[in-house]
Each structure stands twice: as C-alpha cells, then as structure tokens.
C-alpha cells in the first residue's frame, strides 16, 4: 500500500507541476470574497477590527487547506465515461483522489505559510499568539475539516451515477454552507437559530471550527463536543460513501469511454 501511494503521489506531483501557475492564479480568486466580508464586519464593529482581520485571514488559510474539488472531477468522468478506466484498475479510485488532495494541499501549505509569515511582519495582529494546546487542537481539527469536506464532495460526486446535475446540487450546498461554515460571519455573530443548526451540521467543522480553536472563541466543552460531532459526521460519510459506491457500480452504464 505504501509503495502504491508513493507512486501515486509522484504521479500527481508531476501532474500538478504542469498546472502550478494556473493553480496559484486560481488561489488568488478565492481570496476576494473573504476580504470583502472582512471589510463589511470591520465597518459594523470598528472596535473589533483586529479580531476580524485575524479571523478572515485564518479563514482564507483554512478554506484553501480544506477545499475539495472532487465532485467536479467525478461528475465529469462519470458523464464522459472515462471513469471506467479507474474502475478497472486494481486500486479503489478514491486513492487517486486522496493522493491528488495531498499533493495540492502540500502546494497550498508551501505558498500560504510563508505568505502569512511575511504578512505578519507588517500586520501585528497576524502574529500568532496561541498556546501549545491550541495549536495541538487546531491541527487535528484542520485534518478533520479536510476529511469532512473531501468525503462530502466525493460522496456527492458518486451521486453522479444517478443524476446528471450533481454539481448544481453541490453548488447549492456550498452556498448553504456559506452561512453555517463561518464564511459569512464568525459563529458568534450569527442569529441564535443558525448557531444551533451549525453546531449539529457538518459544515461548521469544515472551516469555522479550526478557526474558533485558534482564536480562542471555543471553550473546552465546545471543543470536546465539536470533535465528537465532527467524528460522527466523518463516520457517517464514510458509510454513505461505501454504500453509494457499491450501489453505483451496479448502476454505472459507462457512457462513451
């Protein structure tokens, strides 16, 4: 398995190098909306400007690190019938997607961390003032976020065996998650009803939860409960993925190819 993964990673790494410029250009496109939202909040609460700067910079980082594009890929491959070539291989297709995610997120990390460090030189708020425990909790929360978003996107992609407009459905979910994941506002700024929803739905754990740990907005009980809910969702999504995969293979008609 390890040898297989090394081969996969190397392959995906070479693939990525071919598109690295496009990837970095795309990354800049994902920055504008959080920045505008940040400016809105700085206008609403001028006294908390610094906190919002930190929150939204962390948001850009976490959002990039957890981003998932598998639904678009799967949708295209299933519709065009090229997915069949993956099914024939002796390794579950999900491993290709996982390898791709690891490689791209490595690239994001290599770009974003130095960028943050340089920015912190000029913007004092961004100098990390966190305890070791916070950092120790942040990293697993970030990994959980990556897993959740990846599994969610992949599971949705598998629905492509049945419906053709799966990306449209996914885009709608993304928009719903704008509110519940903490992208429009930190959890504490939301109306109480939305706060309640976001605690039990998976979206918050994809983006907002790691940030709340970093900013100290979540207390001990919140964090413990959060990890619990997130883990339950990961397990649920894994089960759903397996079931959909089995049923989908029977359904697959391999158009074209």
């Amino acid at each position: 398995m390890v040898r297989k993964y090394i081969a996969l990673l190397r392959m995906k790494y070479v693939e990525m190098l071919a598109y690295r410029l496009a990837t970095i250009v795309w990354m800049t496109g994902a920055v504008v909306q959080p920045l505008i939202t940040m400016i809105v909040w700085m206008n609403i609460r001028p006294s908390q400007s610094d906190a919002f700067v930190f929150y939204f910079m962390a948001l850009i980082f976490v959002e990039r690190m957890t981003s998932a594009w598998d639904v678009w890929e799967l949708d295209r491959e299933i519709r065009h019938g090229t997915f069949s070539t993956y099914i024939l291989r002796p390794l579950h297709p999900i491993h290709w997607a996982i390898a791709e995610n690891i490689v791209y997120k490595g690239l994001f990390l290599v770009v974003l961390v130095p960028f943050w460090a340089v920015l912190a030189l000029f913007v004092p708020v961004l100098r990390l003032d966190v305890t070791g425990t916070q950092m120790l909790l942040f990293l697993p929360a970030l990994v959980l976020g990556m897993m959740l978003r990846f599994l969610f996107s992949y599971t949705c992609g598998l629905l492509g065996f049945w419906i053709t407009k799966v990306t449209a459905v996914y885009s709608m979910m993304e928009v719903v998650s704008l509110f519940l994941s903490g992208r429009i506002a930190p959890l504490s700024m939301l109306p109480p009803v939305l706060q309640q929803w976001s605690i039990f739905l998976p979206f918050r754990y994809m983006i907002g939860f790691p940030i709340d740990i970093l900013t100290g907005a979540a207390n001990r009980a919140d964090i413990a409960f959060g990890f619990l809910v997130a883990s339950v969702w990961v397990m649920l999504l894994i089960v759903a993925l397996c079931l959909l995969w089995k049923a989908g293979l029977k359904k697959n008609q391999a158009v074209g190819g």
């Binding site: 909040w41 206008n43 509110f179 429009i184 109306p191």
Partner: peptide, 10 residues
C-alpha cells in the same frame, strides 16, 4: 439572507 445577517448586528 447575507444582507440580513449583516443587519442583524447593525
């Protein structure tokens, strides 16, 4: 809804 969220606070 987004505008509403902002105006919930201001």
């Amino acid at each position: 809804l987004t505008v509403k969220i902002f105006f919930y606070q201001t």
